[in-house]
Design a binder for these strands. Structure first.
Lengths: 200, 200
DNA sequence: GTCTATATATCGATAGAC
DNA sequence: GTCTATCGATATATAGAC
């Protein structure tokens, strides 16, 4: 079978399909996007898409799993640069920088994950939720550690974590690289906001 | 014509349809929801829906416009309780309380507005964006006033406004009244977070 | 690996009886 | 105002020639 729907390996056309589908899914929604539209954006016919992906849902799953794995691996790579005795504040700000940078640089992927996961099969949906939970729990742990150490003072750990996560996720909806804020500058802004939120 | 799609007046069945459609649109998405599903949830056949609404998009528009008008009117009503010489901080915290309360109490409506506006016709979409912009600009004005008065110190007015808005919108995605936080308690939490975000 | 042609299903919406 | 029956369009997906 030549349906290389497994994330990781990719022919040239499969990547073209990924790019086109990602844009269409993120802007118009998964259900509202047709295989004919994806094919037209790539310059082939709808039937030819099935040489590269087994189904429309396979494309969505490919894009979603890749996005979530990228998010997790970039976050973990950032955290790995910290020394073992880093303070909760250092951990929080490092997490936030990676969080903001990802959502600024990968707006379409983030939009897909945040709005189109409902199109996944039940099995793929479960796996996606697990990947997302793994990501979010990392911030929760940092928050709990900071509160336990007495350096964070938040009215509610869970709510504060959600608030920090979500204000970053929203970046994917409006940030444009052509604007007057570079990604590092944007990270600086959110570092300040997050730091204030946990410090009395 | 008996298609009472105009928000405001309503027969018993039309409200049943609104409730069912809101739930289905918010949980499964507008495009993925069929007229037959809505009808089944109400206990009638799909064809009978057209005695109450002219089209599927009419239902979405009814729900969306009502949600956005409720959001605006509740926000404006809250702001109207302030004295004319209220400080920027008082204005901000009042806005945030109404913002959080709405998104905690109207999770499905907020989810609809935030994720399903793409299903609207171009004309209805424009009107919805205008209503949403009117709401968001109110916070922007408060933010600018506080910065101009020297009581708010934010690295970026626009980013800070988005961050406050979005951390509140996210409440609609996870808050459940059965949980261990009442709406007033939740508002207290976000009041603190918002206040910290603007104060150095 | 792309194409044309088509199978099969389901969609939103309408017609007309009751 | 609900129903059954159905239209016309379009969706995903497949078959098979090239």
């Amino acid at each position: 079978m030549s349906v290389d729907s497994s994330p990781g390996m990719s022919s040239a056309t499969a990547d073209d399909i990924r790019r086109a589908a990602l844009r269409l899914f993120a802007t118009g929604g998964y259900e509202a996007t047709t295989m004919r539209e994806i094919a037209a954006a790539v310059g082939i016919r709808a039937a030819s898409l099935y040489n590269h992906f087994g189904s429309k849902e396979d494309i969505l799953w490919d894009l979603t799993s890749t996005a979530l794995e990228d998010l997790n691996s970039e976050s973990e790579a950032s955290m790995a640069t910290l020394s073992p005795d880093a303070t909760p504040t250092e951990k929080l700000l490092t997490f936030v920088r990676a969080h903001i940078a990802y959502h600024a640089k990968n707006g379409e992927q983030a939009t897909l994950v945040n709005m189109q996961m409902g199109g996944l099969s039940k099995s793929h949906h479960r796996k996606s939720v697990a990947l997302r939970d793994r990501y979010e729990s990392r911030l929760r742990s940092i928050m709990q550690e900071g509160v336990a150490a007495g350096v964070f003072h938040v009215p509610d750990e869970r709510v504060a974590s959600f608030a920090i996560l979500q204000m970053g996720i929203a970046v994917s909806g409006w940030y444009r690289p052509e604007g007057n804020l570079s990604v590092p500058q944007l990270c600086d802004v959110y570092e300040i906001l997050a730091n204030r939120m946990v410090a009395a």
